Amino acid sequence: MTEEIIIAGFGGQGVLSMGKILAYSGIMQDQEVSWLPSYGPEMRGGTANVTVILSDERISSPYLKIVDTAIILNQQSMDKFEASVKPGGYLIYDPNGITHHPTRTDIQIFQIEGTKLAAEMGNKKIFNMVILGGFLKEKPVIKIENVIEGLKKSISERYHHLIPLNLEAITKGMKNIVPYKVVAVAMQP
């Protein structure tokens, strides 16, 4: 099993930390792992993405042109990465701020209202964990006990008291991801 993932959005949305948690979780599951971040010079508001590869075999290169799954958190990332999903692959996205929804019919598309759900839970910082939960519901490539270990490894020990909240957010995401149906637009004669 090899899962090639790109997570893309704005800086400050937890894109890189979501990738890091997936990577550490894969290590806890005795998988080969690659984590390759890419971001602009801005701390918040600029674009950021990370590719994560989880595999039972050695990984030859961390660089990906096409992916099994794209997790998209803003319009710029949708414009850039929708086409990079392999036919039959998955695209998971938060519709908040998305003006041009995905149009491909050869991939599986899911929506998760991560921004809204995190706000309802009273902590916008758990947005990325809501999204991660949605991903893990549709692609259970990591066992939840390994996600807990991944959280312990990727966040500072002084924040370990927030692990139960993060797990609650993951569960919320698992319960709230829904398929998205591409609507064909009729062409005018």
Score class of each variant (00 low, 15 high):
Leu151Ile: 09
Ala70Lys: 05
Ser156Phe: 06
Thr105Gly: 05
Glu120Cys: 04
Thr47Pro: 06
Asp94Cys: 06
Ile27Ser: 09
Leu151Phe: 11
Met78Val: 06
Met43Leu: 09
Asp79Pro: 06
Ser17Gly: 04
His160Leu: 12
Leu117Lys: 14
Ile72Arg: 02
Asn146Tyr: 10
Asp79Glu: 14
Ile144His: 06
Gln108Lys: 15
Asp30Gly: 11
Val130Asp: 00
Arg58Trp: 10
Met43Lys: 08
Pro62Cys: 11
Gly14Lys: 00
Glu32Asn: 15
Ile170Glu: 00
Gly114Met: 11
Thr115Phe: 10
Glu57Phe: 11
Ser34Trp: 08
Ser55Leu: 11
Glu32Trp: 12
Arg44Gly: 00
Lys125Gly: 02
Leu16Trp: 04
Leu162Thr: 14
Leu36Gln: 06
Ser25Thr: 10
Lys86Trp: 08
Ala169Gln: 05
Ile155Arg: 08
Val50Ile: 14
Asp30Val: 07
Ile21Tyr: 05
Ser25Leu: 09
Met174Phe: 08
Ala184Thr: 14
His161Pro: 03
Ile131Cys: 03
Tyr63Ala: 12
Met78Phe: 06
Asp68Ile: 01
Ser38His: 10
Leu54Ala: 04
Leu73Tyr: 02
Gly40Ala: 06
Arg58Val: 12
Thr69Tyr: 00
Thr47Lys: 09
Thr171Pro: 02
Asn74Pro: 02
Asp30Arg: 14
Ile155Phe: 11
Pro62Asp: 08
Ile170Tyr: 08
Ile92His: 01
Ile6Val: 15
Leu151Cys: 09
Lys86Pro: 01
Asp56Ser: 15
Lys153Tyr: 08
His100Ser: 10
Val147Gln: 01
Ile27Leu: 15
Thr69Leu: 05
Gly114Thr: 04
Met28Asn: 13
Thr105Arg: 15
Met18Gln: 05
Asn146Trp: 08
Lys153Glu: 13
Asn146Lys: 04
Leu22Asp: 05
Glu3Phe: 07
Gln29Pro: 03
Gln111Pro: 01
Glu3Met: 12
Asn166Gly: 01
Ile92Trp: 04
Ile66Ser: 09
Glu157Tyr: 10
Ser84Val: 04
Pro102Gln: 13
Ser77Asn: 07
Met129Pro: 00
Tyr39Glu: 00
Asn146Gln: 10
Arg58Ser: 10
Asp79Cys: 09
Ser55Pro: 09
Thr51Arg: 09
Met1Trp: 13
Pro87Tyr: 05
Gln76Asn: 12
Lys20Trp: 00
Gly97His: 11
Glu82Thr: 10
Met18Tyr: 05
Glu32Ile: 03
Pro62Met: 09
Lys65Trp: 14
Glu32Gly: 07
Ala119Val: 12
Ile170Ser: 07
Val33Trp: 05
Gly11Met: 04
Lys124Asp: 06
Thr69Phe: 03
His101Glu: 10
Glu120Arg: 13
Lys153Gln: 15
Leu117Pro: 01
Glu113Lys: 14
Gln13Trp: 07
Lys65Asp: 07
Ile131Gln: 01
Asp68Pro: 02
Arg158Ile: 13
Asn166Lys: 11
Ser77Leu: 03
Glu145Ala: 12
Lys124Ile: 12
Asp30Tyr: 07
Ala169Thr: 09
Asp68Tyr: 04
Lys20Gln: 13
Asp79Gln: 15
Lys143Pro: 03
Ala119Trp: 00
Lys172Phe: 02
Pro102Asp: 03
Leu22Ser: 08
Ser156Pro: 02
